[in-house]
Structure formats: C-alpha cells, structure tokens
Design a binder for these strands. Sequence first.
DNA 1: TTACGTGCAAAATATTTGCAAGAAG
DNA 2: CTTCTTGCAAATATTTTGCACGTAA
Lengths: 148, 148
Amino acid sequence: MTHNTVDYARRIRQSGGRLTPQRRLILDAVCEGGGHTTLDEIYARVQAKVPTVNLATIYRTLDFLCDIRLVVRAQVGKQTYYEIASAEPHHHLICRHCGHEEELANQMVEAFFANIRQHYHFYIDSDHLTLFGVCPHCQQSPSVTTNA
Amino acid sequence: MTHNTVDYARRIRQSGGRLTPQRRLILDAVCEGGGHTTLDEIYARVQAKVPTVNLATIYRTLDFLCDIRLVVRAQVGKQTYYEIASAEPHHHLICRHCGHEEELANQMVEAFFANIRQHYHFYIDSDHLTLFGVCPHCQQSPSVTTNA
DNA sequence: TTACGTGCAAAATATTTGCAAGAAG
DNA sequence: CTTCTTGCAAATATTTTGCACGTAA
C-alpha cells in the first residue's frame, strides 16, 4: 500500500464521506495497480479478498474517490485507468503496431509544458500523457499489426 | 465537404474496401463535424439524410474508416471524437475551470515529438493532442469552477 | 440514532455479432 | 459472378438505479 493511511481516511471524512471497509479495499486495489489499473482489475482484486463486494459498489466508489480527488481517471484509448492522485506524473508512449508500452520521462514533458506556459500563459497540469506512435522495432518490420 | 472526393474513394478501394453510399454518408458526416464529432452526432446527421441507415453500420464503418486511417479517433475525457485524418494536425489547450478552449500551435508540438523521436526512437504520430490546464484568465480568478 | 453506503436485482445504455439479402466491383 | 456490406434482431457488455437493510460516526 503506497498511500498514507491516516491521510486518506481524513480526506474521506472531511468531504463528508464515511470510511467503509469497501472503500478501503478499493483504494488499496487502486494502489496495488501501481501506475494505473482498470475497473475490472480493481474489481478482481477486491473480489479476491472479499467476494461479496458488488460491482455496483466499485462503480459508485470510484466515482466518489474521483470526486474527492483521491483518485484520478486517465483515458488511454478506449480504456479508463484509475490511479492514486498523489502519484508522480508519468507518461507513456504506446506503439500502434505491437502495443508496446514505454514510459516517457516526465522531465521531457515538463520542458514541453514549460514552453507552452511561456508562449500561452496556459498552466498545463495534465499529469498523465499518452502518446501513440510507432516503436523502433516496428519501424523496421512494418507488417506487424496486433493493435489498432 | 472538406475532403477530396476522388482521393478518399481511392483510399477505400485500395485497401480492399468498397465505396458504398453508407460509407460516403458517414464520411461526409464526419467532415461536417468540423474539428471533431461524436458517434451519436454522426448517426444523427446520417439519419437526417437516409433514415434507414443502421446504427450497427455506423459502428462498423467508423471502425473500418479508422482502420484504413481515413478517420482518426480522439479521446477527450469520456467521449470519443472522430475526425478526418487528413486534417492538419491540431491540438488543444482546455481550461479546467472555465472550459475555454484554445488551439496549440502544431509547430510546438512537433518540436516536442522530434525530441521524443531523438531520445526514444519512437515515431509519434498522434495528430490530436488535448492538454488540460488553467488558462491565463482563471489563474487570476481561482474561484470559477465550471468544468471538472 | 441517523443518515450514508452497500448488496441485490432490474433497468437503462452501449457495443458487437450472426445471418440472409443486396450491391459494388 | 463473387465477395464485401448492410439491415435487422438478438446477444453481449457496460453502467446506472431503486430499494431495503446494515453500519459508521
């Protein structure tokens, strides 16, 4: 568990919510996902521990956790990923052909954002960028097509 | 209609597909969306002209058009937008507070992509980037909250 | 004790698929 | 002609909701 136990409990209560075992489980499941997890994965992890937890609860709780900003949603292609809001900003390069996924250094992204800030006075705070392209390997073997 | 009629017909045939009235209609509907349109909007536009076109055809055709890259999908929040691929790459800055949307110069994005290419040998071809942040105006009046 | 949160089942949406008929090339 | 596409209906998948009961505070 990466998150600070005391802190998240307070965050939940301060926003008028209650700290239930289900919410704890779901929050833990999001943490265990490391970078990002899908709703299905969260459901599976929670079920593995307490099989009675209902899918509807997962939906409702994730909405709740996003509302109070303990968790953030990240859209990658069609999938929605969930992650702990306090996590370090991180970004991905994904290959259209083979699906290969690679981490993109935040430093490089920050430089880009700084540039935008300078020119547009627009303060970017996207903390999860996903860029699609073609990886080095697939540039040499253009026939492979696993992924749309 | 923005797209070149001859060209798209060829693109479809060259990829082993057939140019049907439905595909024409759907392609037009995507064009009429200007920047980007949702599947629902496309369906509505097509229905307005030819009410017999089925929703399943919209799904299948958009998949097809994306496969042959006449059309691209752009994910903004929960919504999937469709747009003509040949359109100039364009990018947006969206303000989280007031929803203000601004165009981001492709040149700046290209520089960023070039940088990635150089360091990762990853050839980025995302042609529609959407970045969330805070616009100059809202940085001065931090209370406004129209958008999540 | 008093709302709030949960499980359950059902409803509302969204997307995909099989198949026979129609049409593009 | 031949094979790809479509419409239709049904199958799946996904997300939301109403309600009665349990429980955090």
